[in-house]
Structures are given as structure tokens and as C-alpha cells.
Design a protein around this nucleic acid. Structure first.
Length: 464
RNA sequence: GAGGUUGUAGCUCAGUUGGUUAGAGCAUCAGAUUGUGGUUCUGAGGGUCGAGGGUUCGAGACCCUUCAUCCUCCCCA
């Protein structure tokens, strides 16, 4: 049995799918450029030491490691050493430079931080970059989760201004407006979550509280209560958290109510002030014709530990589609500190390309013309007619018309069927009669209409 | 890391309590049709039933092992 296959959790993208994906990429790219972001690409592989320890214990296990080449060339002593190291690698989540020194990138953020640190002398800060590349995780694939998937990030480093937060919100707005995906943008601040932990009298349990709160959508308040208890929060604390997450009304009302609850908590007030300022800048920058909403959501936590300020998440708001988060991001105060460059603040957002694709497919919002391929095909009647077809083909392409010639003088029926399957808009039939008259017959494949005409007229028609 | 699902033609899948030579649709190729496509009609090719072992007179079906696959939990995007 030698049926071909592809590795688990990877996908082929057929022509139509690639066109649709490129439509998403192109849309996002043009928006990033409009906002002054610059493109960046980094290698598929990084040094393993760059990646390990950055994603937590769980994350480290999911890094795809690349086997060193030249493993067989060791001398006797080397072989023995390699053998012991190899066994260690096999027995647990462990890595050894003897066996592996490189790994596939796990996300775009750490390579970006690495790039910034390496090029700090050349970069003009604040540095705004966007990056759209595949990343790899040795995770167990399941629905909507792959071992190779694309991330699309936009970050600003080297500025603490909340104008950046507002601009990133605008980018989200513009992107989902253009892609015609109805969304809600949820916004919160890690400082408010820290304030909650402080209110509970357990500031050191902020991570526990955020992890539990993050599940509110999934497991409901009862589930969260249970989880909070397990994580060592007392009833008094839980009551306070309940009070905070039950704050309702529009964003102004929510923030006002929160500042009342947190009036004695400096970090909470700071978080509220930041949210107010960000939303104020956003108000000045945003497109008022957008019909989505931005909502302050105190239960929004985001999994990643490195966020320190404002955090956002985008969820699809259509009745027709059930989909979780399709984007998210936030501010992180010291990401480059991991590589020795301290005090550089950054804020970034990410688009979940694969999920956005699924949502758009479900909502049927891809432009229709993406489906068609080349515009016109010339049938091949062989002999002199083939020569004639080639001269016509050349003139069409010179005129900028996407055209192709059926390469073999196959049966007429077969060529027509091919044209049909390829979704061609037009067919040109350069046969004996056309060649002798120096004309072409152009058939509109949608209407079935066919007419013999001069090539110039044909080019004019196809250029329209 | 834990639990479950499914492996039969290129693709999607039928296949009865275990019973002769394993089927269908789609796709491919040929013909009806030598310059008019999507619809028809006729015919053809194509399978070590994921792999290995076992039970049986007899296994695609039952048992064991193994590999692959998809899904759920954990975690994440």
C-alpha cells in the first residue's frame, strides 16, 4: 500500500481555496500598509534556545524540533554521548544540542522580539510591523486545529501611547468591515484583573483568577465559582468577583461602575483610565459607518501570561455561524526583556486566518470573481491552425489578457469539456475558416453566444 | 497526557446472524457525436477489504496486536 498522504494536521490548499485565502491576506496587507505598518518575514526555523521557556511548560512540549543532521558521523565517544542524550530526549520533554539545535517557529511574536533585539540599532522606534506566515505546533489536531497554520500579526514596539491601542482597534474594525464579517470586539485590561485579585486579598492569584474567568463563556458562572474555589479563592473574594462581572450598561456606564468599586485600588483606576483613553482615541479615528461594537468585558482574560495592559479579543457575531475567537491581542510591557533588551513596551493584535476563512465561507462573503481562472482559452485544431492560434495567443497576452492555448490537438469535445471545467469565461476557436479570413470566433461561455470578428475587436471586448 | 470514532475502487460510501466470483454513485477512458461544453445513453478499466497474527470447513465481517485517521477533554489559534 503506497497511497500518498500528507502529515497529520497539515493541508493542501487547492487553487480556489488559495485564491480565497489570498483575498484575506491581501485585504489585511493593504490595511496594515495604510496604517503605516511594515512587512517582516522570519525563518521557518529558529534556534531551539530562542523558543524554549517562552511558552510555558505545555508550550515547550508542543515545539516541533528538528533533528540535527550528521548524527551518524560521530566518533565512538561522540556516539556514546549521543546515545545517552537521545535516550533522555525520548524519555521526557527534554532537548539536547547533541540531538537537536533548531526548531520550527511556534508563533510570530517571539521571533519578532528576537528580531527587534538583534536589530535594535537599525530599527526606528516606534517600530510597527506586520507578519503573515505559517507556524507549527506538535499539538494533537482536531476540528479547526492544525499542526501547520497561519498567523497574521501586527505589533507596535517602542511606544506606550494608547494611540497604538486605538489604531489596532481601528485595524480590526477596517478588516472585518472589508471582509464583511460581523464581529464584536471585546476589550479589557490586565490591570483590572490584577485589581480584582487585589480586591480579593490575593494579589498573587491573579493568573489563577484570569484562567478561571476566561472560561466564563464556556462553563458559566457556576463553573467559574467551582474553579475559583479549587484555585484557593474564598467566598468573600468570589462575591466580589461576581459583583464586578455583573456590571452592565454601555461602556461609559460600566467603567463608571467599576471605578466606584475600585475606588481604593490604584492599579484598577489606572486600568480604567487606560481603557477610557484608548476608547476616546478610537472614537476620533474610527469609521462611524461600522455596525459592529466594541464592548468592555471584564471577564475577558486571554490565556497568554505576558500581557500586562489592555487586552482585546474578536468574536464573530453572526447567528448563522458558531465560532469562538477569530482574533486577539494586547499590550505586553517587556517582551524583548527575554532577550536582554529591557523597558521596551509593545502592543499587538493577531488574526486567526483559518477561522476567518471558515466564517467567510459559511457566510458566503467571498467575492464571486475569485472563482474564475484564466479569462479565455484557445482551442487547438492542429497543423496550420495551431500556428495561427499561437500568433493569436501572443497578441492577446501582449494586450494584457489572461489567455491560454489547449496544448494538444485533442478532440473538440474534450477541449470544450476542459474549458468548461476550468470555468473559462470565453473560448476562441481558431480554425480553418478563421485562419483564412484572419479573424477569430469568440464564444461567450456563459451565454453560449458566438461571433466571428477581427482580433482587435475581440481584444477590445475581452479588455472591457 | 486521557478517552472515543472510523479504515472496503482515484473520491464518497453500501456490504444482512460469518457462506460461491466484494457492490453503487462520482471521477477516468472509449463509443453514440470528425467544429460546439454543463444534460443524456451504452460500454470498459480499476480493490492483497489499512497491515500482521488468531478463531473457523469458510473471515471484508469475530478476537488480539499494530499503524493510520477523525473527534472530545486538557491546552490553545
Amino acid at each position: 500500500m503506497s497511497k500518498p498522504s500528507i502529515p497529520q494536521g497539515t493541508r493542501d490548499f487547492s487553487p480556489v481555496v488559495v485564491r480565497k485565502r489570498q483575498y484575506i491576506f491581501n485585504t489585511l496587507r493593504s490595511i496594515f500598509e495604510l496604517y503605516g505598518f511594515q512587512p517582516l518575514e522570519t525563518p521557518a526555523m529558529e534556534n531551539l534556545t530562542t523558543l524554549t521557556g517562552k511558552y510555558g511548560e505545555e508550550g515547550d512540549r508542543l515545539i516541533f524540533k528538528i533533528l540535527n543532521n550528521g548524527l551518524h558521523e560521530k566518533n565512538e565517544a561522540g556516539k556514546e554521548k549521543l546515545n545517552t542524550e537521545w535516550n533522555k530526549v525520548l524519555s521526557k520533554a527534554y532537548s539536547s544540542p547533541e540531538v537537536t539545535e533548531r526548531a520550527l517557529r511556534y508563533d510570530l511574536t517571539i521571533p519578532f522580539a528576537r528580531y527587534v533585539v538583534m536589530n535594535q540599532n537599525d530599527i526606528a522606534f516606534p517600530f510597527k510591523r506586520y507578519q503573515m506566515q505559517p507556524v507549527w505546533r506538535a499539538d494533537r489536531p482536531q476540528k479547526g486545529r492544525y499542526r501547520e497554520f497561519w498567523q497574521c500579526d501586527a505589533d507596535v514596539v517602542g511606544s506606550t501611547s494608547l494611540i497604538n491601542e486605538a489604531e489596532l482597534l481601528c485595524i480590526y474594525q477596517a478588516a472585518f468591515m472589508q471582509l464583511q464579517v460581523p464581529v464584536k470586539i471585546k476589550i479589557n485590561s490586565r490591570k483590572l484583573l490584577a485589581a480584582i485579585a487585589e480586591l480579593c486579598g490575593t494579589p498573587e492569584k491573579m493568573i489563577d483568577i484570569t484562567v478561571a474567568l476566561d472560561k466564563l463563556d464556556k462553563i458559566g458562572w457556576d463553573g467559574v465559582t467551582k474553579e475559583l474555589r479549587e484555585r484557593g479563592i474564598d467566598d468573600d473574594g468570589i462575591n466580589k468577583i461576581e459583583k464586578v462581572i455583573n456590571v452592565t450598561g454601555d461602556n461609559d456606564a460600566r467603567l463608571a461602575a467599576l471605578s466606584e468599586i475600585m475606588k481604593d485600588c490604584a492599579i484598577g483606576l489606572e486600568g480604567i483610565k487606560e481603557l477610557r483613553t484608548s476608547l476616546c482615541y478610537y472614537d476620533g479615528l474610527s469609521d462611524k459607518s461600522w455596525n459592529g461594537i466594541i464592548e468592555v468585558d471584564i471577564s475577558l482574560a486571554r490565556g497568554l501570561n505576558y500581557y500586562t495592559g489592555v487586552i482585546v479579543e474578536v468574536v464573530c457575531e453572526s447567528d448563522k455561524v458558531k465560532m469562538g475567537s477569530i482574533g486577539g491581542g494586547g499590550r505586553y510591557d517587556d517582551l524583548t526583556g527575554l532577550f536582554g533588551l529591557k523597558g521596551l513596551s509593545g502592543v499587538g493584535i493577531s488574526f486567526g486566518i483559518d477561522r476567518i476563512y471558515d466564517v467567510m465561507e459559511e457566510l458566503c462573503v467571498f467575492p464571486e470573481q475569485l472563482a474564475s481562472g484564466a479569462k479565455v482559452i484557445l482551442l487547438n485544431f492542429g497543423g496550420d491552425n495551431e500556428q495561427y492560434a499561437i500568433s493569436v495567443l501572443k497578441q492577446l497576452r501582449t494586450a494584457g489578457i489572461s489567455a491560454e492555448l489547449y496544448p494538444d490537438a485533442a478532440k473538440f469535445d474534450k477541449q470544450m469539456k476542459y474549458a468548461n471545467k476550468r470555468n473559462m469565461a470565453y473560448v476562441i476557436l481558431p480554425g480553418d475558416e478563421e485562419r483564412e479570413k484572419g479573424m477569430v470566433s469568440l464564444k461567450n461561455f456563459l451565454t453560449g453566444e458566438q461571433k466571428m470578428m477581427m482580433l482587435n475587436e475581440c481584444i477590445g471586448l475581452l479588455s472591457a
